[in-house]
Design a protein around this nucleic acid. Structure first.
Length: 121
DNA sequence: TTTATGACTTTGC
DNA sequence: AGCAAAGCCATAA
């Protein structure tokens, strides 16, 4: 289940940004990433209909609620950019290894094999 | 309100 | 193929 932090909810309630529940959309897609697969910020952004919000997607993931498989989100090169959020990329790498995600390098997954493109439809 | 930053992407060299 | 610069969006200060 997707959980929005009180701060985010309050922000939406007060300012009503042009992109309603932008975070919720990102979170929903991240939550739909199958086990053993990973996706990229660009793919998520594209699923949102805005290919250029990749950066914002990373921002949203910064506020990732607990229970969201944010470790399955990597950059276009397959690097565990977000791994640092876990304290150490090895933590993220371990999570991905546990899901049988093919690695191209120690901190780089093989997008050719495990890339999952989200479908917002 | 304006400026600066970021878990990015794409284009150009 | 690999490195550098510009662009885009949302957020934080």
């Amino acid at each position: 289940m997707i959980l929005l932090t009180p701060r985010i909810l309050r922000f939406h309630a007060e300012t009503a940004p042009p992109q309603p529940q932008f975070f919720a959309r990102v979170f929903a897609i991240v939550a739909r990433i199958p086990v053993g697969r990973v996706t990229t910020y660009g793919a998520i952004a594209r699923a949102l209909g805005e290919p250029c919000v990749a950066r914002s997607v990373g921002w949203a993931l910064h506020l990732t609620p607990e229970g969201l498989p944010c470790h399955r989100v990597v950059n276009q090169h397959g690097f565990l950019s977000g791994g640092w959020h876990f304290g150490h990329p090895d933590v993220m790498a371990s999570l991905l290894h546990a899901e049988a995600v093919p690695f191209r390098d120690v901190y780089q997954v093989d997008l050719e094999k495990c890339l999952w493109e989200p479908d917002d439809a």
